[in-house]
Amino acid sequence: MLPLSLLNAAQNKPMVRTLHNFLQERRNVNGHLVNCDNFMNITLREVYQTNADGDRFWKVKECYIRGSTIKYLRVPDALLDVVKEDQTRAREAGKGARGGTHVGGVGRGRGGARGGPPRGGRARGRGI
């Protein structure tokens, strides 16, 4: 489970808290994660924003944060378990469609191809 796929799985789940940096000013942004992409750009809904000192608050209906300005995201603790369950369910569904034994075969094949010796051998052969 890569960090960004965890974020992907967190879509539409309540409460993500972000700290980001805009024009050198640290802000806290709390809200519902609506969408995200591979650059970590995110859109939030029902947002509460605070300034660096945490003494002023703004309520914003929707906001978009460019990924590069994000320092970190705080996500609900329960998310890890939810994501794990989702993954298992997806895997089960995939097995059902393709047939269990076949999936295992593919995995082994890929492992062999990744090993060094076979690949190196073929390359040398072509050179001669």
Binding site: M40, G67, K71, Y72, L73, R74, V75, D77, L80
Partner: peptide
């Protein structure tokens, strides 16, 4: 205590 963190 801060819980689950995703750090850029």
């Amino acid at each position: 205590w801060c819980g689950l963190f995703l750090i850029r």
